[in-house]
Amino acid sequence: MGCYISKRSKKLPGYEDPTVLAAETPFTVSEVEALYELFKKLSSSIINDELIHKEEFQLALFRNSNKRNLFADRIFDLFDLKRNGVIEFGEFVRSLGVFHPNAPQADKISFAFRLYDLRHTGYIEREELKEMVLALLHESDLTISDDFVETIVDKTFSDADSKGDGRIDPEEWKDFVARNPALLKNMTLPYLKDITLAFPSFIMNSEAEDSE
């Protein structure tokens, strides 16, 4: 692919100026441009329209475009900031920014809370937690007795729901994560620090002077 095609494709709807995206996220302009290379790859795997469709997201995560997964669905929905069923470039960069090693911890905590608040009630409820545990067991082909699932959920809830009202609010979540930092491990992607090395071809397509 030559520079002409790359530059023409940048005019497609959904493309946003890397300098604007860099200003709003922990990424530099070069890193945003490198992310554009990744975005182009993901968004053209099934339909070449510079939009990541759910099936393309599933294909990238599972090597299978039909594999449904509760958590992948939640991530997709959170990335889809405009809630129009596809992930645009700007949404991709802004959402991945939360996973940058230098992103504020508070953003990671809030993202994880919204991820687990399946029904968007502003709370993580016991039923939601149980549903997620069952989804994980199903995904992993693990069989655990319902009694044991109840025990795990009860124990976690008694640790996290410090006010004892049967639901975890954002404040309780923050305290719980502070006591269990491993819960945020998957909210940081070390790859994002080296993104320009992973996708060096952006240098050929770069339009902007780097600010750093």
């Binding site: 997964n69 992948a72 939640r74 937690l129 795990i152 124990k155 719980f176």
Partner: peptide
């Protein structure tokens, strides 16, 4: 005594939450 597994820790191992896969060639 083994520590009881934290439900959120269990959930966080989901393949669907491993976005690192997006960066694999």
């Amino acid at each position: 005594r083994p520590t009881m597994m934290n439900a959120f820790e269990l959930i966080s191992t989901s393949q669907g939450l491993n976005l690192g896969t997006l960066f694999e060639k």
